[in-house]
């Protein structure tokens, strides 16, 4: 009798595990079909700029890292704030010792002007 019970329990558990495997296989098979979609953003495909904080944060970090590559820049703090139809860009530079501060400032300003060239109301301040 005990052996019978044990067999029944093992059988039941086996059935459950089989169910699990089938379910898993089905999910894998369904996912196995690859589906490819291609998308392009190019000149002329300009959509509305999403003015969100996360994008501003990403841009700030990217610009900061690039400015640190410049000779004459010891540190840079870039702050970008998007409004509905404008963007405020404020950059605080810490100059390296002996740096041509005016030239470095002009370089940073020129880069920012180009970077935000397509933003109609970009207000750029470099300190």
């Amino acid at each position: 009798m005990k052996s019978k019970k044990f067999t029944t329990i093992v059988l039941a558990l086996s059935l459950l595990l089989c169910g699990c495997a089938v379910q898993n296989d089905a999910a894998g098979a369904a996912g196995g079909q690859s589906d490819e979609t291609v998308y392009t953003a190019s000149v002329g495909s300009k959509n509305s700029m999403s003015a969100d904080e996360q994008y501003a944060e990403l841009t700030q970090d990217t610009l900061r890292e690039a400015f640190l590559e410049l000779e004459g820049v010891k540190d840079a703090k870039v702050h970008i704030a998007y409004a509905e139809d404008s963007v405020e860009v404020t950059t605080d530079l810490t100059y390296a010792e002996g740096a041509d501060q005016e030239k470095t400032k002009e370089t940073v300003e020129a880069v920012l002007q180009k970077f935000f060239a397509d933003d109609v109301n970009a207000h750029i301040t470099v300190n």
Binding site: G32, Q33, S34, T37, Y39, T40, S42, V43
Partner: peptide
């Protein structure tokens, strides 16, 4: 000039 993106679904729904 252009940024192209190509996404391919591989599994897991």
């Amino acid at each position: 000039i252009v940024l192209n993106g190509n996404a391919t679904t591989l599994g897991g729904g």
